[in-house]
Design a protein around this nucleic acid. Structure first.
Lengths: 229, 229
DNA sequence: GCAACTTTGTGCGTTCCTTCACAAGCGCTT
DNA sequence: AAGCGCTTGTGAAGGAACGCACAAAGTTGC
């Protein structure tokens, strides 16, 4: 999973010491809960919520227990309360300024992704150096040349950046992001970024995901003595 | 019934028993190794490879040991051998036919992703029901109406599908994929898909990834006594 | 006010994963 | 051919995560 050993020893169950595995599931719970709320559901049991989210009920309860005790025995959880508590834990209350670098198809897709605001993010700028893109408007923002990054980053206090460039450009983009004070990077380029230890990088890679699926698929096939056609 | 039944524990580490955590890292190693090979590197030590991939050297060696013993003590690993062995384990040798449903910006980005062929995948069809898209050519393929899915899936033996539609359409797309014999789904839509137990779904969600980053960012800020924003 | 019922919160055993540390093995040098 | 330096492969220890199972705690109905 993640071997981002944050602070090394801080993982102990201190105040706010939510296990990494739990953190990774909180956004999922949040999403499911918001959907429930929109469907008019006011209260939900751990069993029902766990089924919807596709996890084990006991695991769900334990995850939620790290945030505090917000359930009512015999009844369940109030959806709105959970949404608020998970949101608080994830920092949705504050509004994180985010920049996207690279406005190809992927950058477009990300920029037009509707869920930024409702999840605590504000897209503040799009960068790309392609002349035919600079100056055009995408998702209500004007695409700016990458050279503008430092100014924007400092002006808006940007700490989170998304790399959606082709692989060859990714490393130097990351370097520039780090130099501009960004220390959380979401990397969609199929390369391993080299950054200072203080910078947190998450990598999202289509091919890796497909290969993991293919591995399981292959194993299933082997078990049945079948051959992938 | 399987080896698992009459084997206490050792067999779990035997042929085909690669731990899930290791499987998730193999594509990363593969990618790094291919990059090394293209740079003309012929041999690499676990330390060097681990540094490049950003993992612990011992973990890397243990991961590789599940595939067999392909290193030379005192020297390291031959890059080409590792690429081949990891490829074999991941099923890169065979060529998995893949379909993408949804040809918006994200679908475009995925379709134009160059790494399919080199990683054992062959993109066989793109589906979208938008009239202005059907019939157009994307990434060398003609976009087809979603109704064509069953025919294509059976003709090509498609077992892996990518959902790149907006959230509201995702569930029914998934249902159709399953009905057409697809049992590995990569889901980019921000919803939890409900599928039969035999179907393997992996979810890739921009917002979740950002929220995990934000959580760590927030925790770092808290540690320093800072306030977000 | 009490009993029956429901659901949470969690202690505990189990499994999985990670990391350390070192013996075994290989090539190079002398 | 023997010793030296380097790197792999892995035993073992320590953590982290999972999930069962149940007591605690609340609600509902009478």
């Amino acid at each position: 999973m993640t071997d981002r050993a944050h602070a090394g020893r801080a993982v102990a169950v201190r105040r706010g010491g939510v296990p990494e595995a739990t953190v990774a599931r909180l956004p999922l719970y949040h999403r499911v809960l918001v959907d429930l709320a929109e469907s008019g559901v006011a209260t939900v049991s751990s069993d029902a919520l766990a089924t919807t989210a596709g996890v084990n009920p006991a695991k769900l309860r334990k995850d939620l227990s790290f945030l505090g005790s917000y359930g009512t025995r015999g009844v369940g959880y109030e959806v709105s309360v959970l949404i608020e508590q998970i949101g608080a834990e994830l920092g949705i209350s504050s509004e994180w300024p985010v920049v996207i670098v690279g406005v190809g198809h992927l950058g477009h897709a990300l920029a037009n992704y509707g869920g930024f605001a409702s999840r605590g993010f504000r897209l503040v700028a799009l960068f790309d150096d392609a002349p035919q893109l600079v100056g055009t408007e995408v998702a209500g923002l004007t695409v700016r040349p990458f050279a503008d990054l430092p100014a924007v980053a400092r002006a808006d206090g940007v700490l989170i950046g998304v790399v959606a460039t082709p692989a060859p450009a990714a490393q130097q983009v990351a370097d520039a992001l780090v130099a501009a004070g960004v220390n959380s990077i979401l990397n969609f380029a199929p390369v391993v970024l080299s950054v200072p230890p203080a910078v947190d990088v998450r990598r999202v890679d289509l091919a890796s995901e497909l290969q993991i699926l293919a591995f399981h698929q292959q194993r299933r096939g082997d078990d049945l003595g079948q051959v992938a056609r």
